[in-house]
Structures are given as structure tokens and as C-alpha cells.
Computed example of a mutant assay.
Amino acid sequence: MSPVDSAGEFTRDQRYIGTRITADGRDGFPVEAGRYRLVVARACPWANRAIIVRRLLGLEDALSMGVCGPTHDERSWTFDLDPGGRDPVLGIERLRDAFLARFPDYDKGITVPAIVDVPSGKVVTNDFAQITVDLSLEWAAFHRPGAPQLYPSHLRDEIDEVNEGVFADVNNGVYRAGFAGTQEAYDKAFTRLFARLDQLSERLSGQRYLVGDTITEADVRLFTTLARFDAVYHGHFKCNRAKLTEMPVLWAYARDLFQTPGFGDTIDFVHIKRHYYEVHRDLNPRGIVPAGPDPRGWLTPHGREALGGRPFGDGTPPAPPLPAETVPPSHSAQQVPQ
């Protein structure tokens, strides 16, 4: 993880590769079906966003996906889930190989999600925030019929405003609490986190989704943190004023999204817990992974339909996940992990 600063505050390294894959190819990487591979890890909330957006937009045939295992060492994520420990398309064992292929002296974080140019084997971008927006806007020619508008032009300013607060205080806020180097830094992050969650609860008490009456990019970004809250952040990161299940509005909102095709079917609770509890040995020295919480509560009724709203607007739900991309039932809310 990124280091803490002199005040003990966690500072995320945000020096991402800013190259974009665009419809007009202005950065040298034009949108082309089959040319690129999205590399993710189901454990990672930032990568989970890209998995969800790719599913919602129906880009599976245009943009293949490689899935790293839930743990990694100081070098990078690895393809240990694949036969022989190599990605079957890229032919590499570690994601860092794609980064070094383009930047031999690369000295920043090897992060997911990342998009790799298959012909050259070189990483194009790991700018997670831009990746999902570009999947909505630049890859439109390859969207499925009925794909939702996740970043509609008339709502972008509001979506951006909501996303800014959610990133600072919630998405990154849980990390600022978990990796705080001083009590003061922890207290500050903790206070900001729950103040923002209270604000979001108030906002969502009268509307089904964060912006407008359909699912947008804003909901995707908040959901991936909420999905990990009780399993990881409440205990592991000391974000323990309340569990998600003890925040009625946010818990119902999160269950509503979880039960929406494209959201809950991307969540792998086993990978999530293994990543945080096994990799963060500074916080959990023995690497013991907790058995709970029971995920079946995610499938209980939420009642959010009473607020109206249309999940996909004028569009339709995505098809079920591809067989090769389906989360095992024992890793999901379908049954308690053994």
C-alpha cells in the first residue's frame, strides 16, 4: 500500500498511466474489439467497478477479461488461478510483465484494473476512474442492445460531484482509517467516513439511486465499497461505528444493487477476505481469514422498489455471466463459504 505521510495520514499513490483507449485513437490506442484485455482481481474494489461496468454494458465479446488471484506479493498481482499460473491470452505470470513491457523502468504501483494491448503485450492504462467512464463513452459502438446509460450527459456534473465526495471520504476513506499511522489521523478519517455515510443515507432515504432515477456510475463506485464493508472494513480497517447491516438505508440500498444483475454476481467474498486478511500482514500478522459474516443476508428483501426508479432506464438487464466468469456459489451469497 501507499505510505503514510509525516502526519500519519495514508496517502494513495495516484500516479496512474493516463493513456486512454478512445474511439478516435488519439492516444495511439483506438477502440477495437478483441484487441485489448481487461485485467482484474475480484478482491479489489477498484477493479470490481470495471467488472460491473463491463457486464452492464455487455462488452464481454469486445473486451476479454483476465482474472488475477486474490493475493499478491510486493512485485505484483499474479495469474495463479489459470493453468500453469499464466494468463491464457497474454501468456504472462505477473501483471508487472505487461507494465515493464511498456515502461522498463516503471516505478509506480502495479495495480488493477489494467487494460493490456494484446498484440504488443504492453499495458495501456491502469487509470481506474477513467477506465469505467471510457467503457461507457468510448466503447459505445460495442455496447449490447439495451445497455444502460451509466454516465448520461445531463447528469455528469452531479455524478462527478457525488463521486468526488464518495471517493475522498468512503472509497479511499476506509483505507485512510485502516492504514492511519497516528490516532489523530485515524480519528479524522473515521469521522469523515461516517459523516459522509450519514449524508449518503439521508440522500438515499428519499430516492432509490444516487443520481437520477436509474443506476449510474455513481452507484457502481459506492457499491464496491459497501459490498466489502462488513466483511473487511468494519473490523480489519477499524471502521466500526456501525456495520453496514446496522445502517438501514445504506444496507437496503446495497442489497437492492446486489440483487440487480451485474452487481452481486460479480462479488466473490472468499477472494475479498483472502486478499485483505492475507496480504495486509502489517494489520493482520498471522494472516488468519475470518469465517464470517454470513453473506446470505444480501439476498433478503430490501423494499427499495417503493421509491420508484428504473434500474436500467429504457434499457434491459445484462445476460447472466459467462460460465468462465461466474463466481462459484460457495464464494457468493448463494451459500455460506466453507
Rank of each mutant, 00 (worst) to 15 (best):
R228V: 05
T326E: 14
F269K: 06
R304F: 02
A180S: 08
F229T: 08
P317L: 14
A291H: 08
T191E: 10
K238H: 10
V124D: 05
V67L: 08
D219L: 08
E9K: 11
T326S: 13
F237P: 13
S2I: 00
E9G: 09
D82Y: 15
G313Y: 03
A33S: 14
L95R: 15
A185D: 00
R296V: 05
G165P: 04
S6L: 03
E138G: 00
V211C: 05
A7N: 14
V89A: 14
D73G: 14
W139D: 00
E164K: 14
A291Q: 10
D13E: 04
G235K: 09
R37L: 15
E158D: 15
V220I: 06
P145C: 04
G313Q: 05
R144P: 06
G308P: 06
F79I: 14
V211D: 04
E202S: 05
R55P: 11
V39G: 02
D282N: 09
R102D: 12
N172K: 11
I51G: 01
D268F: 00
R196C: 10
V220Y: 02
R26L: 08
S332R: 01
Y36H: 01
S120F: 03
L63Q: 01
V118F: 11
V336S: 05
L63D: 02
A252M: 13
F29I: 01
G91E: 11
E138W: 00
N163S: 13
I21H: 02
E305V: 10
S330E: 15
P295T: 01
K243H: 15
G109L: 15
D294L: 01
I272V: 13
H234E: 09
Y277N: 09
G297W: 00
Y36G: 01
G173D: 02
G109Y: 05
Y106C: 07
Q149Y: 13
S6M: 05
G69H: 14
V133K: 03
A189V: 13
I272Q: 10
L63V: 02
D27M: 04
L283Q: 08
A291L: 12
A319E: 12
D5F: 00
E164C: 15
L90N: 00
N172E: 12
P113I: 08
Y277Q: 01
H275A: 10
S205V: 04
R221F: 09
N126V: 00
V67I: 03
K108H: 14
G28L: 03
H280R: 13
N284D: 09
L81F: 15
E74A: 15
V118D: 03
D80Y: 07
F10R: 05
W251Q: 07
V211Q: 03
P145V: 06
F194E: 09
N284F: 12
R255I: 03
D105C: 11
Y253M: 06
A23P: 12
P320T: 08
N240Y: 12
L38E: 01
E60P: 07
L299P: 03
I115F: 06
